[in-house]
Simulated assay, not measured.
Amino acid sequence: MPPEVLVPGTRTSTSFEAIGTRWTLTAAEPMTAAVLDRVDAAIAEYDAVWSRFRTDSAVAAVARGEAVDLGPTAPPLLDLLADLRERTAGAMDPFVAASLEHLGYGASTALRPADGYLPAPRAEVVREGTVVRTEPPRLLDVGSAGKGQLVDLVADVLADAGHADALVDASGDLRVAGDPLRVALEHSFDPEAAIGIVEVADGAIAGSAVNRRDWSLGGGRRLHHVLDARTGRPVETIAATWVLADTAMLADALATALFFVGPDTLTDAYDFRWVRMRTDGVADWSADLPGEVFR
C-alpha cells in the first residue's frame, strides 16, 4: 500500500505511469532526459520478460511450454520465490496466476470472477542458468517480488548516473539512497490516517494491503489480490504488512510472506524489520523497528 513519503529539503522529481503503477523518481540533482530514457528502457525490458498480462511476454512463452532465457533477473527472483514457497508451506506460490485469473484478476480489466475458488495448480520451475521452463507448462506470477526487483533496477540506473541521493517510489515499493526518509504507514481502514512512521536509510520499504487491488464478488463480498495459493482464497486474517530491507525485491517478497507466516519463520534467513496489522485492527512490529507504531 502506498506510504506517504516525507521528503525533507529541495528535490527534483518526475512522475509517470508504467506497468499499471504510478512511479515517482526524486533526486537531489536534476535527472537528464538520457537518464530517464534509460529508466524507461529498464522498465520496458522487465515488463517484456515478466508481465503475465501480455501474450507476447517471455513468461507467456514459458506458459506455452517453451524453454526461454529470462535473463539475469531470473535467478535471484526465482530463488527467492522458491525459498518463500517452501517457508510458507505453499501458501505463497509463483503459480498463483491461475487462481487470480479465476477470480477475475487477469489481462482483462473486467474483474469478473468465476464461481468458487481455484487452488494454484501444482508445477515446478526448471532452470538451467537463466533458461527457464515449467513442468507442466504454467503461467508464472512474480508479482509478490517482481515490482520490488524492478524498483531496485531503476534505483541502479539512477546510481550509475551519479545520483547518490535519490528515491524511487513505485506506489508502495520504495528504494532510498542518500539522506534518510521518514515514511508514514497508511492505515488500512482509513487512507487519511497513519498507523506509524518509520525511517528508511539506504535501503527499501515495501507494503501490501487487502484494501489495494480489491473488487466485488457480488452479494456484498469483496476480493483482493493476496491469495493463499493452497486454496485460492483471499487472506482473511491480515490486513496489511510493511517490511524494511536492504533491497526492494526482498522487502516486497517478505511483505507478502508475512500474510501467511510469522516473522520467526523468516528471520533465520533474511535481515529485515517489519510491521503487521491484523484485520481486527491490532498491529505488531519488530523490536528494532526504526520508528514508531501508534497504539
Rank of each mutant, 00 (worst) to 15 (best):
S13K: 04
S15A: 15
R22P: 01
T24D: 04
A27H: 04
M31Q: 11
T32E: 13
D37N: 14
R38G: 10
V49D: 05
T55F: 05
V59R: 01
A60L: 02
A61P: 08
V62H: 02
R64H: 12
V68G: 10
D69G: 02
L70E: 07
P72K: 08
A74W: 03
P75Q: 06
L77A: 03
D83N: 04
A89D: 13
G90N: 01
D93W: 02
L100N: 01
L100K: 07
L103G: 04
G104K: 00
P119V: 00
A120P: 00
E124A: 14
E124Q: 12
R127N: 01
E128I: 04
P137I: 11
L139F: 00
V142R: 03
S144T: 14
A145V: 02
A155W: 05
V157Q: 08
D160F: 03
A164K: 09
A177D: 11
P180F: 02
R182D: 14
S188R: 06
S188L: 07
A194W: 05
I195L: 14
E199L: 06
R212I: 09
R213P: 11
W215C: 08
L217Q: 12
R222E: 08
H224R: 10
H225V: 08
H225M: 09
V226D: 06
A229Q: 03
T231L: 01
R233E: 15
I238T: 14
A239W: 10
D246E: 15
A248Y: 13
M249T: 06
D252Q: 08
D252K: 06
A255R: 11
T256G: 07
F259N: 07
F260W: 06
Y270L: 06
W274Q: 14
V275Q: 11
G281N: 10
G281C: 08
V282Q: 15
D288N: 12
V293Q: 10
R295D: 15
